[in-house]
Design a protein around this nucleic acid. Structure first.
Length: 470
DNA sequence: TCTGGGGTCCTAGGACCC
DNA sequence: TCTGGGGTCCTAGGACCC
């Protein structure tokens, strides 16, 4: 917590619905609901006119229609939302380079890191800056309104922006933070959702003041280490989390809920394949690769399972991801019908393994390539100790062995101080990696040559999975 | 025929290594 | 051939956020 109110939180009011009303004059003054319009959709944003009928975010669209049948139900135009969001973020960055977007319609700004305050962070100055910001946002977005909160921490700024929605502005004077929080319901604290609130309620804790009376150890016993200690501090307005710009993505995923449960295995396979392809498309568009592939399955009874597997090195290869995703989904009993399927990739990195046969020659033929000059020389007298062009030519002989990961059509073979593995469904990806003992570079190569799926041999060096496989 | 889609973070248990 | 503890990685699940 700072001595001055220099953290700003901006939240665009009923954002998706407001963009729709801006762009379609016939919707202005009318209830508008943006979200899933299918049989299993939920509300993403309801305009204030729709909220008057009790329509809320996260409510099922079915229920929203029951409460407000005459609203306009729209599935959303995310390109338009992204464009409007970019204009707003641009305004925020004029105040300070330290802007942390939380979503398309929300962001923190560290005013102390910019020159908008010109060194004076008293309440009057920050209020004037925020008034100006709201006017600028209204202007550049051609009519959208924002609610702004300013305080001495992220916690206070965020809570403040929620106090006078829509089109609100609240600056919390330093020193008054705890008095502000005490009477509030404990669910006001970000991170206290339904499950946490219920645990606290059983102990008679309903407000921030109630929670303040609990000891750290009690909270930790109730909620776990991180959450318990975090809440102990937050209810005391003790928050020094920094505003962090440009956080890197940690995972990319795609999921779909179907209007009716999918029963046929072939359909499940086809859907997973499509999702895996889509997720790799987004991965590659971001210039990334990933090590861990996860599939998510929600069954007819809403129970949700996930299965994941981690590769020794990042991949951005569609066939590899498709094959792994399909293998993973087969580990789940989907016979009773599937409500949702999803495919995700995590363990992201901005590098991928070199393509072995790209390095050796454009033909993709393992036997005709030329040496990659970057490859270190093999160890003397040990033909299998280090990768050379000759080893590459012999890869077929090494590409053998037991399935890895279990159940997948994936193979590897120990190769001296390196190893080879591949994945695929007759469209095998083989990667060849050398690991040296001790520090130093790791050379990696890859191939997608289908010929490498042939000639599997059970003898000749099959051994344990690659070290990174766990 | 309740209950989206895109994420983040945390926990717990097991494997494995020193 | 028993008794460890700590650290890291992986997997699965859960809570939470917008």
């Amino acid at each position: 917590m700072r001595a001055e109110p220099t953290i700003l939180h901006l939240d665009l009011d009923a954002f998706y619905a407001a963009v729709e009303q801006r762009d379609k004059p016939s919707l202005r003054g009318r209830p508008v609901v943006v979200g899933g319009v299918g049989g299993r959709g939920v509300v993403a944003t309801a305009s204030y006119e729709a909220r008057a009928y009790g329509v809320r975010s996260a409510m099922s669209t079915r229920e929203a229609r029951a409460r407000c049948p005459h609203a306009a139900y729209l599935s959303g135009r995310f390109d338009a939302y992204r464009a409007a969001s970019a204009l707003v973020m641009e305004q925020l960055r004029r105040l300070s380079p330290l802007v942390e977007p939380l979503s398309l319609d929300e962001a923190f700004v560290d005013l102390a890191a910019g020159d908008a305050l010109a060194g004076t962070a008293d309440v009057a100055t920050v209020t004037a800056v925020a008034e100006r910001l709201k006017a600028d946002v209204h202007e550049v977005t051609e009519g959208l309104t924002a609610s702004v909160g300013i305080g001495s921490s992220k916690l206070i700024a965020k809570i403040a922006s929620d106090l006078r929605k829509p089109d609100g502005l609240v600056v919390v004077a330093p020193g008054t933070e705890r008095d502000l929080l005490r009477p509030m319901p404990i669910t006001t604290i970000p991170g206290v959702g339904p499950a946490t609130a219920e645990r606290l309620r059983r102990l008679g804790v309903h407000t921030v003041a109630d929670a303040e009376r609990m000891a750290v150890d009690e909270l930790v016993a109730l909620l776990g280490r991180a959450h318990g200690e975090g809440l102990y501090r937050l209810v005391r307005a003790d928050d020094d989390r920094p505003v962090v710009a440009e956080r890197e993505a940690k995972s990319i995923s795609v999921e779909d809920t179907f209007d009716s449960d999918v029963v046929e295995q072939r359909m499940v396979d086809a859907l997973v394949e499509r999702q895996a392809t889509k997720v790799v498309g987004r991965l590659r568009a971001a210039g990334l690769a990933g090590r861990t592939v996860t599939v998510k399955v929600r069954l007819h009874d809403f129970s949700t399972l996930s299965r994941s597997t981690t590769l020794p090195a990042p991949t951005d290869d569609v066939r590899t991801v498709v094959a792994l995703a399909r293998t993973l989904v087969h580990e789940v009993d989907t016979a009773g019908g599937v409500r949702l399927l999803g495919v995700g990739i995590s363990g992201l990195a901005d590098w991928i393994q070199e393509d072995l046969f790209g390095a050796l020659g454009a033909t993709g033929d393992p036997g005709t390539g030329s040496a990659d000059p970057a490859v270190d020389a093999p160890a003397d007298g040990d033909p299998a100790a280090a990768p050379t062009t000759e080893d590459a030519a012999d890869i077929e002989a090494f590409t053998v062995a037991r399935p890895w990961p279990p159940g997948a059509d994936v193979h590897h073979v120990d190769h001296g101080d390196g190893w080879v593995w591949g994945a695929g469904l007759g469209r095998v990806t083989v990667r060849f990696e050398t690991r040296r003992t001790g520090p130093g570079p790791v050379r990696t190569f890859a191939s997608d040559d289908p010929g490498l799926s042939r000639g599997h041999r059970a003898e000749g060096g099959a051994s344990d999975p690659p070290p990174a496989s766990g």
